[in-house]
Design a protein around this nucleic acid. Structure first.
Lengths: 117, 117
DNA sequence: GCTCCAGATCGACCATGATCAATCTACGTA
DNA sequence: TACGTAGATTGATCATGGTCGATCTGGAGC
């Protein structure tokens, strides 16, 4: 055990070391930032419920079926879907007048695996 | 296939049904809201990096080692740790002058499993 | 007692984000 | 062509949240 040279400010009582020095490599930082971006997209109750509904109906769900599930207006649902789409969590196809949303395959896997390390 | 009775506003072209009606049970809603609370706590880059650092050093890490890892002030780091603690993601013990934080065992499992469900 | 330090809390400031009313854009139908 | 509808966009409002400086708390040492 090496006796680290400490300035008076960092002086510690004998037998009371603070803890091991901690390093946080840049690679881990960048991965964490990507995970945080996905987590941010999921950090709203309505958005998480949207994802839940979409994946339970494997395939596509029309926006006109999603909107009445929540007591917010249609523009708000549209906004939340946009946030999810920009985060790469969901995608959509237009067919006629209607827009169909679906969870992008594997979109949640990275975060799930990161969380369970 | 039952021909649903539609008001003129919901009238659809023949051969162009919107999609299957969607139900979202209350139980699923509540679970989603709990998941959203955890996701919210993880939705900040600094907080996710804090979690990352803590779990990589299995055991405890002193706040005085965490603070210099980020270019925000000490009160801000303290704030983020508080958010994580209130969400049940981390916990802390005080020992002497120092506070040691650690990831609560299994704290991230629920969200991870929900995501990969 | 007093002083120093680690960490938490407070108060204020500012940026972000959720929401809605109104409008716009396509598309389908008559 | 004109009209109605699904959904996206705009702009404004209001709440939330990240940040910092200053202060407070409590333990350790003198």
């Amino acid at each position: 055990m090496v006796d680290l040279e400490l300035t008076p400010k960092q002086k510690r009582g004998p037998g009371e070391p603070c803890c091991e020095p901690v390093a946080y490599p840049e690679v881990a930082r960048q991965e964490a930032e990507r995970m945080a971006a996905v987590a941010k997209a999921l950090a709203d109750p309505i958005r998480l419920q949207l994802v839940d509904v979409l994946r339970q109906h494997a395939g596509e769900v029309c926006v006109c079926e999603l909107t009445p599930l929540f007591d917010v207006g249609q523009p708000t649902v549209s906004h939340h879907l946009k946030v999810l789409r920009q985060a790469g969590v969901v995608d959509s196809v237009r067919r006629g007048l209607w827009a169909y949303y679906f969870v992008r395959p594997g979109a949640l896997e990275d975060l799930s695996r990161w969380l369970s390390r």
